[in-house]
Design a protein around this nucleic acid. Structure first.
Lengths: 229, 229
DNA sequence: TCAAAAGTGTTGCCACTACACCCATGA
DNA sequence: TCATGGGTGTAGTGGCAACACTTTTGA
């Protein structure tokens, strides 16, 4: 049933833009490449798609191989296909993004030796990136800026229990502007997706803040509605 | 400098979802295929990407070859890459959409003989579509629904001179709900992107409506701002 | 007792909704 | 003169922005 296709030298890859939040800073996951081209350069985690896997499956596999990270829901956001973007031939790349919790529990251990190491890098201090990865990163950042304005997804960046101030910080860092504390709290609580845990922060040398958890059940109802910040 | 790539049987294509508006109905451009697989089926205009053209260039070329249409600004919206989507092998497809003015001036004449004919079909009366094109169409429609709510792009579907009622019809058809006439006009005019032409409709057997034109200069200022319907 | 962040209400403004009647035109 | 769509204003409501002080805690 298979016929010969007219183009045999094209192929495609996945690149992942993973955002994390740590110490009040927005971070992105980069790997140090261990293969030509761009050996020793920093790059977004990415690799070629296998013939027997969907794009979504491929994204999950590649992320796992390059960083050790598993079970992350990533979403496709754009496909980059300029002619000269890859020095070895015509390779287009489907870009994915995700927001995820950082934490000591998720150690970054590349499994493939295609990456020497993987690190969370502050988005304000990016090194030069391989290929057109700067462009891919820029568009990924724009994407989450737009999304965070319309859907309450900032939780995904925080630990399971968090304070309202931490949540506000996430918004402020991503949107790049200060928000009013009272208005932020009023609005966020009005969405009814936060569960008050009746529990306080510990180990701080000031008044301990209430901890909240994201309530998935209630979130389902809100989803689809548009909100804005 | 080029090295052998690990995968040589993959390739990629473009599919275009073009929306038009005519006789109060939203239409999509379909071609009747003249090649296997899915010979004689209806499909979105699409074909394989050449090695020496970017995705955007390819989309423009393919549209021209299959329909005769030129100079349309199309925007990429999603890449479809399930394993079984193409019976001849692993072919992913980058989907584009655009909204454009219908009119007798733009005759549909396929140049490639890959398509027998091209037609504007009412989106409510779609025939069975080749490949996964129903899915691609569905997502394209969702995309313009979301976009029309946030940016005043409905003009693109109308002739250069149009009435406010025609514009409202576009919104109603795409959003699938009735809008209040007075509120619609108030809001639309408040954006300041319509130029009153001091000119009236002709040949209607009722009170002639004022014609407006879309003002590109003013639109530039608005762009980026979020609006909603 | 000081430093640092937590937590809390009110007001004015603007944008949105709902709603009904007269006007102009050609047949 | 009738049928058809064009065109207009207002009042009520709810969400948003702006704004400052008191409370709690550990050092």
């Amino acid at each position: 049933m298979k016929e010969v296709l007219p183009q045999l030298t094209s192929t495609f890859s996945i690149d992942c833009v993973l955002f994390g939040f740590d110490e009040g800073e927005l971070k992105v996951l980069l790997i140090e490449r261990n293969e030509e081209p761009f050996k020793d350069w920093w790059a977004l985690p990415g690799y070629l798609v296998n013939e027997n896997e969907s794009l979504d499956q491929s994204a999950a596999r590649i992320l796992h191989e390059l960083t050790g990270i598993e079970n992350v829901y990533m979403e496709q956001f754009y496909t980059f296909g300029d002619v000269g973007r890859h020095p070895q031939g015509r390779i287009i790349s489907v870009a994915y993004y995700a927001m995820l919790r950082l934490g000591g529990d998720k150690a970054l251990k590349p499994i493939s030796n295609y990456a020497k190491q993987a690190h969370w890098i502050n988005v304000k201090e990016l090194p030069p990136l391989a290929f057109d990865h700067q462009k891919i990163f820029d568009q990924g950042l724009e994407k989450i800026k737009r999304r965070i304005k319309h859907q309450p997804i900032a939780f995904e960046l925080l630990p399971e229990k968090f304070t309202l101030t931490q949540l506000q910080n996430v918004y402020e860092v991503i949107l790049g502007k200060k928000l009013d504390k009272r208005n932020f709290r009023k609005k966020m609580l009005s969405f009814n997706v936060l569960k008050d845990l009746n529990e306080k922060q510990k180990g701080v040398s000031f008044r301990a803040a209430t901890l909240y958890r994201f309530d998935k059940r209630k979130y389902g109802k809100l989803f689809g509605k548009e909100i804005s910040f």
